[in-house]
Amino acid sequence: MAFFFEVLINGLLVGIMYSLVALGFALIYKASDVFNMAQGAMSLLAGLALVGFLEMSFPLWLALLCTVGVMIILAYSTVFFILKPLVARPPLMLFMATFGVMYLVEGIGQSIYGTQAKGLSIGIPEISFEIQGILLNTFDLTFAGLAAVLVAGLVWFFQKTRTGRALRAVSDDHEAALSVGIPLLKAWAVTWVIAGIVATVAGVAWGTRLGVQFSLGYIAFKALPVLIIGGIDSIPGAIIAGLIVGAGENLAEVFIGPYVGGGIQTFFPYLIALLVLYFKPYGLFGKEIIERV
């Protein structure tokens, strides 16, 4: 039984890191109806930039600050050079545009920082210890705590601050928000900056785990089922679905995997997602779209 709980808890901890990536998607979708395929690439860029700054022997805090700076530049240039001309186009076009952004970010990031895999260490100790027979890891716990703080911060920001309220208005109805004087593009830029910061946290977390390399962009593929299970536009949904997916895939890999040859983590989240969507087509917490002809 202790083994079961160990697998479960480690799955949940990984799940929180999936939620971090899914959160970036959900934020942007909520604010601008854009499904941002470039989120994984943004994490990759953040990881690459952080390693780059650390290699230039910046202290950690400065390197993190500069990385966030890079993400802010990315956010503003995406919104003003790419999304601004595409305002009021169908969502499909915006989705496709983020494909372009994905290629651009990957290409530019890797031409600056090179394509070889790099180690990233930001000085969080990785010590394993046992509580009642369950093996845990300080590194995972640190990032789980960090994610919790980040989510709490985001909730506070969206509920209590003026900017957060403006963003919620924009996500409810673009035109109504414009007509009461909320600058749409500015609101989008702020959202992309926030998503960039979330991507930085995710990039650092995953980069420390897996090393910073091209495949870091692929964690987005783990976050996508998380996103649709929770509902594309739901922040609490992203968190809960992340936990479900993390626990589910870890349990499946350990308990079902040996019978079918292993490696089922790559697609198991999608199976969960298909199952959930069969019963709830807009995810667990997604906004149901009522359509009229």
């Binding site: 496709m96 545009a97 494909f99 372009g100 952004v101 994905m102 290629y103 651009l104 970010v105 990957e106 290409g107 530019i108 890797q110 031409s111």
Partner: peptide
């Protein structure tokens, strides 16, 4: 990648 993305 850059040209492909840019052109999209």
């Amino acid at each position: 990648a850059i040209i492909f993305g840019g052109l999209i």
